[in-house]
């Protein structure tokens, strides 16, 4: 093969359209948009079943206690603030402050999961107690799975922060985890309104 092509014939371009540019964040955002539709499906299923139910609550259940879950909510929602702080400090290359706030966010997420477990264990109805029980555990459980995933991802990023030079010049994993955490938060707010506030 002796043919060559004059390099001037073809454009050289590294950034943006380049051969191996990194598109992870784009892909992750597309994934999150898609994932939100599963929640949308569960939310609309919940609303349809609730609106058409004759006896929504199972016998012997008066409704859901909302005060402790409200505290849990406050913890989870404010953890969206601490993760923003963590990212801010990473941007300023203050890695220890980043790790501190990152760990705080993980702790707040774990506290939320713990509160959820305590609430579940004190409830008088199960997964098979009609559509109320089914949708309650399905929604909170599926969301809890996402909280756990978020904490796991944060753990990974924390470990990666100890690899020398790994966070120089930005790290898309941190950005993606942070986005995921905000996503989990927003979903919870909708979920809280649907399940705990709309009890009438």
């Amino acid at each position: 093969m002796t043919t060559t092509i004059n390099p001037e014939l073809t454009a050289e371009h590294g950034e943006g359209h380049g051969a191996h540019a990194n598109h992870n964040l784009t892909g992750f955002i597309i994934f999150l948009c898609s994932e939100s539709v599963i929640f949308l499906a569960f939310f609309s299923g919940y609303a349809i079943l609730k609106l058409s139910a004759l006896n929504w609550l199972p016998p012997g259940v008066d409704g859901l206690e909302w005060r402790t879950p409200l505290i849990n909510t406050a913890v989870l929602v404010s953890s969206s603030g601490t993760i923003v702080l963590a990212e801010h400090f990473k941007g300023k290359e203050k890695l220890w402050l980043f790790r501190g706030f990152w760990l705080l966010t993980m702790a707040m997420g774990s506290y939320f999961l713990y509160g959820q477990a305590v609430e579940w264990s004190g409830l008088q109805f199960g997964f098979t107690s009609g559509t109320f029980g089914g949708t309650f555990y399905l929604l909170t459980g599926f969301h809890g799975l996402h909280v756990a995933t978020g904490i796991f991802l944060m753990g990974l990023m924390l470990v990666k922060s100890f690899l020398p030079g790994n966070y120089v010049g930005g790290e898309q994993g941190v950005q993606a985890t942070s986005l995921f955490w905000h996503f989990v938060d927003v979903i919870w707010i909708v979920l809280f309104l649907l399940i705990y506030v709309w009890q009438g």
């Binding site: 597309i30 948009c33 898609s34 994932e35 939100s36 539709v37 599963i38 949308l40 499906a41 569960f42 299923g45 997964f127 089914g134 399905l138």
Partner: peptide, 16 residues
């Protein structure tokens, strides 16, 4: 991306 998650949600409920 828009449609499949809805089926997945419905199928999870069917599986339960």
């Amino acid at each position: 991306l828009i449609g499949l998650p809805a089926l997945t949600g419905g199928a999870v409920m069917l599986l339960f």
